[in-house]
Design a protein around this nucleic acid. Structure first.
Length: 356
DNA sequence: CATGCCGGGTA
DNA sequence: TACCCGGCATG
């Protein structure tokens, strides 16, 4: 799909420095461009290369452009389907400093139209001289996509499935599932007495009705019985490797705290570059509680979060020299904005901006 | 495989 | 000292 652009980048890589050829997994465009820009020393490189790289960079400043090439493992159809899902429910600014679409026009069961209207997309990093091409909301998704990216929004449906033990209640709205959890499992009578420590463990099933029509036909909003849940989905309340734990109060700087009970479908903000999904049915477990999560927890790589269910914070014996959970410059800014990294990160040293 | 960063190299 | 990178540990 981006063959033209990619080839351009790769062409530049062809006879560039070893650094470039080495990091083939990164965005060749920006890498080349930045390297070319940075290494403006008289290395004998033709100006043409620099120019081409620069142009490519300017074309590819939107990470969205870069993702498809950097995530080759995602099958194209699934990837696109996922993007469709994203575009219906989330607003991603793709640079790490993402933001929810603060507008509360989203209704879980009826995916809202593309967020062409999200005006307050704050994108503080976009100080590049770029024009508004990437502010155009989801249009950027398809800037370089094949000309027929027509989506089938109508085919996407969001379900919410209770993850509490022995309960597989499936509702079509997250508020419904939250109410269900609150009343049934948390024993609360009203929504008002929320003490901010509620754990709403439910999974958000985004179902592509096209491909899974009959497979999930029994997963109707009113079907409380065993629905066609993903086979590997673990029973709740013990371990939730697939679950995402999101809190209502204490989201930190990078994770906007717009997670409100009233805006259910904006629960999870997905960084698209981590938007891993292998199937058209995306399962996302969501919990609203009081636990703190590092900012990096807004990942979609759902299997990394050790979501502790009980309020007792499970003392992860990560006391070992584990890698910090904080997003480092590389993750936050991405390769394409490498010049925004802290110097330590640029030099492959310990990040000094996002210390743990 | 991607990421973080130590250790060591170069200018 | 600033910068870069090989290579390893980690997830």
């Amino acid at each position: 799909m981006f063959s033209g652009v990619n080839e351009g980048g790769l062409l530049c890589m062809g006879h560039s420095e070893k650094q470039l050829s080495k990091k083939t997994s990164f965005s060749p465009l920006s890498e080349v461009a930045q390297a070319a820009e940075r290494h403006h020393k008289p290395s004998g490189h033709a100006d043409k290369e620099v120019m081409a790289a620069t142009v490519l960079t300017s074309l590819s400043t939107s990470p969205l452009v870069h993702y498809p090439s950097s995530a080759p493992t995602v099958p194209e159809p699934a990837g696109r389907a996922w993007k469709e899902v994203l575009s219906t429910s989330y607003s991603s600014s793709t640079s790490g400093n993402w933001s929810w679409d603060a507008s509360d026009h989203s209704v879980p069961s009826t995916p809202s139209p593309p967020l062409l209207n999200d005006t307050n997309k704050n994108f503080p990093l976009s100080s590049q001289g770029d024009d508004g091409s990437e502010d155009a909301g989801e249009s950027q998704h398809f800037m370089f996509e094949d000309p027929i990216p027509r989506k089938r929004k109508n085919s996407m449906k969001v379900m919410f499935k209770c993850l509490w033990k022995n309960c597989e209640k499936v509702l079509s709205t997250s508020s419904g599932i939250q109410r269900h959890i609150r009343t049934i499992h948390l024993g609360r009578s009203s929504e008002s007495d929320s003490d901010g420590e509620e754990d709403f463990y439910y999974s958000e099933l985004e179902v592509n009705m096209d491909s899974l029509t009959e497979g999930l036909s029994n997963l109707t909003p009113t079907s409380p019985t065993t629905a066609g849940s993903p086979p590997s989905f673990p029973p709740p309340l013990t371990d939730l490797p697939h679950s995402k734990h999101i809190n209502t109060n204490g989201l930190q700087s990078h994770a906007p705290s717009l997670l409100s009970h009233s805006a259910p479908s904006t629960l999870c903000h997905i960084r698209t570059d981590h938007a891993y999904q292998g199937a058209t049915t995306h399962v996302r477990a969501v919990s609203i509680g009081e636990k703190r999560q590092p900012a990096a927890s807004a990942h979609t790589t759902v299997n990394k979060n050790h979501a502790s269910i009980t309020p007792a914070p499970k003392s992860t014996q990560g006391a070992r020299k584990s890698r910090g959970e904080a997003k480092k410059c590389r993750k936050v800014y991405g390769m394409e904005k490498r010049d925004m990294w802290c110097t330590a990160c640029r030099w492959k040293k310990a990040c000094q901006r996002f210390t743990d």
